[in-house]
Design a protein around this nucleic acid. Structure first.
Lengths: 357, 357
DNA sequence: CTGAAAGCGCTTACAG
DNA sequence: CTGAAAGCGCTTACAG
């Protein structure tokens, strides 16, 4: 036999399909005995309601979609348990929907919203270069979490959505200032593609500002841009970019890498070049993924405030769902977590430093 | 305005909804001019069809679902690009659906199959302790890929599904034999929970058989079982288990870890204990995730034949979809990939070895 | 507490 | 090539 419908169950139980529907959906207006009898049959025949029919008919579900662009990103993976906790606490059903890096998130969001009668959407990751008019197409409450460059390209961006992220420029500035404070003056960087308009640009900007403030000239030979053809924040890319820098003619004592996974690749490139971390080269990553703790030496990195970000995303979404017309754009402070991958040159050459001054 | 339906488009274009439907679905039986005029309006108003209605009406979709249990597993993540390639090559639409470790995969599979009128399902990961009768509930072609312990608990398991995996017992045996060949005789193991009936058990069995063949007594003090309360193949667990072993009174020169991520944690535990890899302790991982290349030293591990496994999974699914009633259970050979985390004790103590003999 | 009926938004024979 | 109509499998007022 193919697959059961509510009609089959109704026939078997000798009741109407309305009654079966009520039994399944725990409608209070049903006789408990009837309900039990029906549920017995439901179990016996392993009847599963067709969600397409259900979604089609229902006015609104209680479901929120978490749409993730870039499922391979361990930073996002680290957020899932927090989202789960918050969404459940908010009393929502939710599901995770992953989309590829090339997918059109606005289209997908609207498509799923229709299909599932969503109550709201949290979009995690990706970049958001869409003008406001495009964003407006999404007819359900929407929150952008950790979406790179949101609002950057559209000064009016965000009048229809809320967003939560960190201040990339500021955090990069923090990292490089920290390195300067530790006596580093030749500081390399592994960043995104040349001409990046999102994270790469913001973090590069922070890097440059910190250098400037410390009286260090910007030297493009110390910046490795990502290959246009392979725009992934992977170990392989980090390895390859770091190797390129190491083979360059410019010396440096530290490197700031804009993603932890790339920094792991950079670690290996440094080791393969016969150098030590941090003795020869100091490394600072970005994101704060779990793995960085397990590197040798454990990696100093910028830990994004995952808990705050997820909490706020859910809260802002709930506010919208509950009718608030206010849209907020929250920027959280990340934490530069000191571990063992940065050498304090002041401690190594205290005398020399004094002479310099 | 809320959200557009096919009716709105029909009204705007002055045609029937049938015609709009045909335009959208590229029905050949439509006037090209009419089609273009309709599509113009569709684009202008950003009309998106409701998939629930579509799924409800359509007899069968062209879609295959890839249901993944354990999205955090980087081994599975490494498979996605291959699945994508194969599924596209097979001419299928597909989507990734992630479920939590505690979800009932059979229920979810059947639910989605109904909702989306799936053509078939590939289930990736998880364990499959379901008896055949439960599996039979899934009314669409089903292939189990890398599903632990499939058929182990049910001698008749598999008469309704096909499966693709590796021989866990054999691969573990391979690893431990390799270590013995390299002169190791005190070999520890980091495995799953005590009483595991799936991967953990199979790999432990292979470990024991290899020891036995090499005349080495099994010593449970050298085996770290995973905590019942925290059954995850994570770095944190590997770190904690390795630390426990290192603090034990038994000495060992090598450790076999049943998952790469755990092995990364083990690396760190070894370093934190002030020991070196492989000089003091040799490490072998399992799975062959990309990251192992970037560890220092690069990790010797068992690389699962991802490409073959994904290819075969898709092929077996297609066979079923095309009417084949044959069900196959393929076991592929993995590759013990030698890198730098194992010391050859024979090379270090060649004389001693000879004296031993 | 239960049932008959309408209808969610589509697709697809069928007729023209 | 196009339209009217049936129907996918449910939920939910409405009436009783």
């Amino acid at each position: 036999m193919a697959t059961m419908t509510i009609k089959d169950i109704a026939r078997i139980c000798g009741v109407s399909i309305s009654t079966v529907s009520r039994a399944i959906n725990n409608d209070p207006a049903i006789n408990e005995k009837t309900r039990e009898r029906i549920m017995q049959v439901v179990r016996e025949f392993n009847y599963i309601p067709n969600n397409s029919a259900r979604n089609l008919k229902m006015a609104e579900s209680n479901t929120v979609a978490l749409i993730v662009k870039g499922i391979n990103n361990p930073f996002f993976q680290g957020m899932f348990p927090y989202f789960q906790k918050e969404l459940v606490a908010a009393g929502c059903d939710y599901f995770l929907h992953t989309i590829s890096g090339s997918a059109d998130e606005v289209y997908v969001a609207e498509e799923i919203a229709k299909e599932k009668r969503l109550k709201g959407i949290i979009l995690l990751g990706g970049t958001m270069d869409y003008p406001d008019v495009v964003l407006k197409r999404i007819h359900v409450p929407l929150v952008l979490c950790s979406v790179a460059g949101f609002g950057v390209n559209d000064p009016n961006g965000g009048s229809h959505v809320s967003s939560v992220s960190i201040d990339d420029e500021k955090e990069a500035h923090k990292v490089v200032s920290y390195l300067c404070d530790r006596g580093h003056r030749q500081i390399a960087m592994l960043t995104g593609v040349r001409g990046d308009t999102n994270v790469g640009m913001m973090r590069l900007r922070g890097y440059r500002r910190a250098l400037e403030e410390n009286g260090i000239a910007y030297d493009e030979d110390l910046v490795a841009f990502m290959d246009e053809k392979n725009q992934e924040y992977t170990e392989a890319n980090g390895y390859q970019m770091m190797t390129r820098l190491l083979k360059g003619r410019k010396k440096f004592t530290a490197v700031f890498v804009i993603a932890d996974r790339m920094a792991i690749g950079a670690y290996k490139a440094i080791y393969d070049a016969g150098l030590r971390i941090p003795d020869d080269i100091s490394v600072v990553g970005f994101d704060g993924i779990e793995l960085t703790r397990y590197m040798e030496p454990s990696m100093t990195t910028v830990i994004q405030p995952v808990q705050k970000m997820t909490e706020s995303s859910v809260r802002l979404l709930m506010d919208q769902i509950n009718g608030s017309t206010e849209r907020k754009h929250l920027l959280y402070e990340a934490e530069l977590h000191e571990r063992d991958s940065v050498l304090d040159l002041n401690a190594v050459f205290p005398k020399a430093e004094l002479l310099h001054a």
